[in-house]
Design a protein around this nucleic acid. Sequence first.
DNA 1: CTAGAATTGATAATGAGTCTCATTCCTGCA
DNA 2: TGCAGGAATGAGACTCATTATCAATTCTAG
Lengths: 156, 156
Amino acid sequence: MTEQSRQGAVDKDLLSELHAQIGSKLTQQGHRYTNGRQELVEALMLTGQPMTLPDIVEADPKLAQSSAYRNLDVLVRCGVIRRINAGGDHSYFELAEPLLGHHHHLICMSCGSIEDVHFDSEIEHLVDKSLSEISARTGFTPTTHSLDLHGHCADC
Amino acid sequence: MTEQSRQGAVDKDLLSELHAQIGSKLTQQGHRYTNGRQELVEALMLTGQPMTLPDIVEADPKLAQSSAYRNLDVLVRCGVIRRINAGGDHSYFELAEPLLGHHHHLICMSCGSIEDVHFDSEIEHLVDKSLSEISARTGFTPTTHSLDLHGHCADC
DNA sequence: CTAGAATTGATAATGAGTCTCATTCCTGCA
DNA sequence: TGCAGGAATGAGACTCATTATCAATTCTAG
């Protein structure tokens, strides 16, 4: 996890396809896909793991902190980025599920790191079914669910 | 949810049994189960739903904010209380699972409220099985998992 | 080219949660 | 019962992640 060179499995084509997708999403909602926003998104795409704001600014030091926070917020509200509250000092950010696929998190209680994991579809299906029942029973309308594991990562 | 009179399903016997249980847990770890701590726990037991610090202080105004935060922290570290990061301004607190049973949360994205729900054991079992596989595969050692629904509550 | 709106970035402000410290309260022991 | 030493308390100061402000800059439609 200290390995800086770790990158998500994104080749150049997928990357620019994502940019295009995000760009039109922003435009639709009356926002511009500016340089700063692209760089923000690109940092997240290249890292391929949830990042805190300090992580992001360190990865791309030309990003101003205040703008980064503001743009993160815009992107979250546009459904491009998802904010994860892991309990540490900082929030984590990652590409939203429409872009990254549905997945879950391994949250290390020692070092605070977060890693993505995918569950097999059988489980997801059962969970969904169960969640539908809950919704019907309680009148709650679910938008999404989060199933995260809290424990200790392999390094800790 | 604005209903102040809502109370968890705890009768007086269960309540003092819980107090005894918690008291010995604290004593074991070299802490005292003082008045302030008992009142803190009692507020959570009576409400029966996750509460923020302002909720708690409002429910029992003789609790000092700084002491409440400090004691909440002690109780969390002793495994009596669990902290929930729902994404709003405040953390939520509730009795820990050994006392309240394993359950999940309905988190309303409009009003920020949190409600407890129990899933059927079939799902829990499958989830556990799946989580074991994940652990084996990734080297992550899970302590617990959180499966929460994000959406809109019946009132919103 | 230009007006109006969106964006930027430096900086100030906000506020949840934590820390400090003098005082008070317990608990074990003589 | 009295006492010493540690634990707990509460008021207030403080930290620091995040947000708000605002003047300057950049886009974009016309």
